[in-house]
Structure formats: structure tokens, C-alpha cells
């Protein structure tokens, strides 16, 4: 289970990336955020952002038309 959940459902680009980056800044290394989004752009944007930031994308799945991303701060 992630330490924090961020709800970015129904929000468009660039909000999912902005929201997860804001949540991430309050976390310590080893903690993780679960982002829930409906923006299809997040499917490429979140993995790209996490990889560029040096964070690890622990999990990514789709449930009921919503995209979930679990990103761990390293």
C-alpha cells in the first residue's frame, strides 16, 4: 500500500504530473504515492516523469477505466 494517495481523476494534462510531484515533495525516501488518474496522457507522462526524476514506478494498472500508478521516492 502506498503512503499517500493522490486523486487526479477527471483532471487533464498537466495536472496529474503536477499533483504527483507536489505530493512527492513531502515524502521521505522509501515512501510511495499512489496516483489515480483518468487522463490517457498520464499513461506516458507519469512513467516518463518518474524515470526522469529517478523515482521508481512500482506498479501501474487500470481498474474501472481509471489509471493507477504507484511511485516510490528513492
Amino acid at each position: 500500500m502506498a503512503d499517500v494517495t493522490v486523486d487526479a481523476r477527471n483532471l487533464q494534462c498537466p495536472m496529474p504530473v503536477l499533483k504527483i510531484s507536489q505530493a512527492m515533495k513531502d515524502l521521505s525516501p522509501g515512501q510511495s504515492v499512489e496516483l489515480v488518474a483518468t487522463d490517457r496522457g498520464a499513461l506516458s507522462d507519469i512513467p516518463a516523469w518518474a524515470s526522469d526524476m529517478g523515482y521508481s514506478l512500482k506498479e501501474q494498472f487500470e481498474r474501472d477505466g481509471e489509471f493507477h500508478f504507484v511511485v516510490e521516492k528513492s
Partner: peptide, 11 residues
């Protein structure tokens, strides 16, 4: 503004 805020989200 979308690119500026996203750039900030990239640190």
C-alpha cells in the same frame, strides 16, 4: 503555463 508548471514538476 502548462510547460512552465510541468518543468517545475520536473524539479
Amino acid at each position: 503555463l502548462i510547460l512552465a508548471t510541468t518543468g517545475a514538476a520536473y524539479g
